[in-house]
Write a protein that binds this DNA or RNA. Sequence first.
DNA 1: ATGACGATTTACT
DNA 2: GTAAATCGTCATA
Length: 236
Amino acid sequence: MSPVSGRMEFEVHTDRAAFARAANDLAPRLLGLRLVRTLDDGTRLGGEIVEVEAYLGAKDRACHTFGGRRTPRNEAMYGPAGTAYVYFTYGMHHCVNVVCGVGTGADGGGVGEAVLIRALRPVEGMDVMRRHRSGGRRRGRATLAEKDLCSGPGKVCQALGIDRAFNGVDLLSSPNLALESSSTISPNRILRDARIGVESAGEWAGRRLRWFFDDCEHVSVRRMDRSARIVRVAFS
DNA sequence: ATGACGATTTACT
DNA sequence: GTAAATCGTCATA
C-alpha cells in the first residue's frame, strides 16, 4: 500500500488488518473515508473525513495512554484495531477516535494508539445533523452553515449523535457507526502540521501529527502556521 | 475527599 | 484576540 497510489487502497473499512498500523501511518489513510452514524430508524448521518490527528501511545505525551496509563476512561484505546474510542472532555464535548496500532488485530493486545477524527465534510443527513448542532431546536437561532456542522472533533460527535455509548464499539461490525469508502472523494492536496490543543505536551506538541485537506472549508483550523505544508496529492 | 485539568466550542470585545 | 461554560477523570492525600 503505497501512500501515494489510487483510491482503491482506501477501502479499509472492513479489513481489520488495514487498521493495525501505527497511528501516524493510518491517520492520512482515513482522509476521504466516510464516517456514518445510522440511527435506529435507519437515518444515515455522516460525511467525508477531512481532518485527522495521530496519537502515538505510551511515548506520546499528548496521548491519553502516555506512559502506559491504563484507566477505565482510556481502556478502549487498548482494544483491537478498528475499535471506537469516545471520550468526554471539557465537561461538554465528546470526541471520537479510531483505535489502531501494529499487532492490534482481533487477537492482538492493544498498544494504546488511535486516530482522532477532527472534521468531516457533511454528506448525509444534514438536516438532522443541523438539528443536533442547534441544541435540538429547529428555529430560534440562525441556521448553521454547512461548514459549521462538523468542523471540529466536538462538532462531529454532536452532529452525528456520538456519545460514550459508542465507546468501545467495533467500527468494522457495528450497525450504528461505521467507516465506509466513499465514491465521491473530492481531489485534494493533503497538508500536515502540528496537532491542535496539545500545547502542554512539551516536545510532542510540535510534532506534525495532524493531516487535513488543503483549502477545505470543513476543516477546524485551516492552517496553524507556515510550517504546514503539502505532504502529498491525493486522488489525482 | 479534594482539586486541577482538559485531544473544545461559543460568544463577546 | 480573550474568556466563560461545565463536569468527568485521575492523581494526590
